[in-house]
């Protein structure tokens, strides 16, 4: 059974009685352990798709089954619970809590989880180690570089051990060297730790770090291809 099954998904925003259709019937499946890049120009509907897949937004029609269960059957606190337990989010603008340490930021999702409190410290330490920030554990996040901040965000996404990690333009605010390191970390998570990753980007060279690229245009899937020659930065910079 695929982890994510999307069938004929449609999404229309209604604002002051003006209907804006964004997704016009999208279908695809994503298996556990895949690294998929969703690509498309701005306004193509890729962010909307990510929000629907991430249980941050609903859909108008069609079907979205996560782990075999229709997403629209989750309501209220149940969506909060599934975001907490099964999904991890990485944002373009990091979205860290200011005036809090790396550890405090990484531990944030644990506050809302049912993970026993005596496991919190170990989980936090482990997640920080995976992203290679052990030496910065007690730093205030305002003292970190952009690349380091994004790695804190990755550790935060990992700490509840989710099924899927959603990364929304994670390298968009970073220089090419930091961006390269982030893509390396994501690949590492996918290849060595077996995490399912869904990446949003509008850059082909970033998307080619994934194993599969789904191109979206005007709310429809334009192409869905396997990446034959996967890019690896290997300590280098993210380049065209």
């Amino acid at each position: 059974m695929p982890l994510i099954e999307v069938t004929n998904l449609e999404k229309t925003y209604v604002n002051d009685d003006v209907e804006t259709p964004v997704l016009h019937g999208v279908s695809f499946n994503i298996e556990r352990g895949e690294f998929v890049a969703l690509m498309g120009p701005s306004g193509s509907g890729k962010s909307t798709l990510l929000h629907v897949l991430g249980f941050l937004d609903g859909y108008t029609s069609g079907s979205y089954r996560f782990d075999g269960k229709e997403a629209s059957t989750y309501e209220g606190d149940a969506t909060a619970l599934i975001r907490n337990k099964k999904l991890g989010f990485i944002f373009q603008s990091f979205n860290l809590l200011p005036h809090a340490s790396v550890s405090e930021n990484v531990a944030l999702p644990l506050l809302y989880s049912d993970v026993p409190e005596n496991e919190w410290a170990k989980r936090t330490i482990d997640a920080i180690e995976i992203v290679g920030l052990t030496h910065r554990r007690d730093y205030d996040t305002t003292r970190l570089s952009g690349g380091e901040k994004q790695r804190v965000a990755i550790a935060r996404a990992l700490v509840c051990n989710p099924e899927v990690i959603f990364a929304d333009e994670p390298t968009g605010n970073l220089d090419s060297k930091s961006g390269g390191a982030i893509m390396e970390t994501l690949q590492n998570l996918n290849e060595k730790h077996g995490h399912t990753i869904i990446l949003i980007t509008h850059e082909t060279y970033t998307a080619e770090h994934a194993g599969r690229i789904i191109r979206i245009k005007d709310g429809l899937i334009e192409s869905d291809t396997i990446v034959t020659k996967r890019r690896h930065t290997d300590g280098g910079v993210l380049k065209k």
């Binding site: 909060a80 975001r83 337990k85 989010f89 979205n95 809590l97 944030l108 999702p109 809302y112 989880s113």
Partner: peptide, 16 residues
């Protein structure tokens, strides 16, 4: 607002 959005994305319920 942004902090609230983040907390919700990370699993905070309305009650939290």
């Amino acid at each position: 607002t942004k902090e609230i959005g983040l907390r919700k994305a990370l699993g905070a319920t309305q009650k939290n």
